[in-house]
Simulated scan of single mutants.
Amino acid sequence: MAFWMWNAAKEPWGSIVESPLQSADLENAPDAGFEIEYSFIGNSWNEFSTVIFRKQNAEIIYRTIYSMCDDFAYKGDSIYDDFVLRRSDYAGDTSQWNNLDDKRISIVEELKRKIEEYEIEYSWVNSSSFPYTILYGDPVIVSLKNFKSRTRKELVLKNSSEAGVHKAIAIEKLMRKAWPAREAFTKLTEEEVIQNCWEAQKNQPHPRFKEFIL
């Protein structure tokens, strides 16, 4: 009976969105095999960094996008709902495509396989019961564009280690391993970013979190 009740109490953790690729995606990358894109927020929400990995013929190349000082937004009904982080524009997109080093090629290839195989996991943890600071601080979103099958798969994972969902945890670890060094995004140190953003925002009214909703 206890096992049945535990099983019945489990809830789906995160979400999966699958859709066909748009014609613009296919036109912009005619020779690509796949593309993986994801972002991380750092420095108390002062930095928003994105990396894009692309399989181009026999090589994997990558580029970075960097925004700071609230040059991004999220949208969703509430911080406890399935919100999705989105960069507001490509204003910080100054990076050219670069060849990925051999050490990380296998990591990106494995990440692709894990995303393709991933199905919703279940946990007894209810995401709405998590403290505001936990959910607000570490959302994980990763998307895979498969140009051969012409499909896109996006995973939205929230604090998987807290929920004990092992396949999601494995994906997050691979995302961290594949992440480029800080110099690929900006030459500024974390301390310089904090100071610059403080100077830019000290005379501006700080909006409540719901005012970030698009």
Rank of each mutant, 00 (worst) to 15 (best):
M1P: 02
E11G: 04
I134Q: 13
E121N: 05
S44H: 05
A163V: 02
A170C: 05
L174C: 01
S44I: 06
E11K: 15
G14S: 07
E37V: 13
L174Y: 03
F83G: 00
E59T: 02
S123C: 06
L21D: 01
N43C: 12
E183G: 05
K210N: 12
M175L: 14
K103P: 05
P139F: 02
Y118K: 08
F48W: 06
L100G: 00
A181V: 12
T186A: 05
E190V: 04
I171N: 11
W198G: 12
Q195Y: 03
I169M: 14
N28Q: 14
S143G: 09
D138Q: 07
N126C: 05
K114F: 09
E119N: 12
K158Q: 14
K55H: 05
S129Q: 13
A163Q: 10
A184N: 10
T151M: 14
H166F: 12
S67R: 11
C197M: 11
Y122G: 11
K103H: 11
M1K: 12
N146A: 09
R86I: 09
T94V: 02
A168N: 01
P20A: 10
R152I: 04
C197E: 03
A58N: 15
E211Y: 15
L174W: 00
K158W: 14
V140E: 01
G137K: 09
K10G: 04
N28Y: 10
K103E: 15
A2M: 08
N46Q: 09
E116Q: 15
V142M: 07
K158G: 00
M68F: 11
G76P: 04
P139C: 05
E183K: 13
D71I: 06
P207I: 05
F53H: 00
K210H: 13
I105R: 02
S143R: 12
E47I: 04
D138V: 01
R87E: 04
N196P: 07
A200R: 14
M1G: 13
I105F: 09
P131F: 10
